[in-house]
Design a protein around this nucleic acid. Structure first.
Lengths: 98, 98
DNA sequence: TTGGTGTATTAGTATATTATAAATTACTAT
DNA sequence: ATAGTAATTTATAATATACTAATACACCAA
């Protein structure tokens, strides 16, 4: 592969990884890989303050890793696509299993 | 899994991902997954300035992702272990293939 | 329309990362 | 020893990120 194409790919991927490179956001991804949860539920599970949580969700959302759907007053989040699922699964396999 | 154990794992993994979350460092990992290269060779391949390159190598080294061996004046780097290889392979599979 | 609940955004400050330049260490050859 | 090359470290300035508090927005119920 030529270097400049690699550069631009690396740049995209590094932004995505950057979004995952925060312990709270990793935990969010991990939780959301198991079940769809709304913001209040995530707040309770992870013990984060609401505005902070909302900001982290925003980071993941902007990178296309998660997506939310509104149901009344709540917004339920889940992993956005197969790529996000594959990423979380790989990380789990590499770093958490045995 | 209980939350506090998850917290501490997430914290470790996020540090590791943080080390990967820079386009130059991703490119380094990618190159070094293919072949062992010394600093001068990496400098030429990636077009980075030498002190900057050395700092990026330091970040990856401290996270245990790569390791170097000195051969005379050169230091040759490669991925440090199977976990690092698995990570690079997974990232390639998820983001670069197809 | 008013008030309440759930979520998001903004602003300000503290902290961390990055790039660049200068100095330093490690090795080789003479 | 001295000089030269390869690589690392340190210092610093610029930029980005994170946390907190305050504010705003969206929806619901009365």
């Amino acid at each position: 592969m030529n270097i400049s194409k690699m550069q631009s790919q690396a740049s995209d991927i590094s932004e995505l990884l950057q979004a995952c490179s925060h312990s709270s956001r990793l935990m969010l991804l991990c939780q959301l890989s198991q079940e769809e949860l709304n913001v209040g539920e995530l707040e309770a599970k992870l013990g984060l303050q609401q505005p902070s949580l909302s900001q982290h969700l925003g980071v993941l959302r902007r990178q296309g890793l998660i997506e939310g759907r509104r149901a009344g007053q709540q917004i339920y989040y889940k992993l956005a696509n197969d790529r996000a699922k594959a990423l979380v699964t790989s990380l789990y396999t590499i770093f958490c299993e045995k």
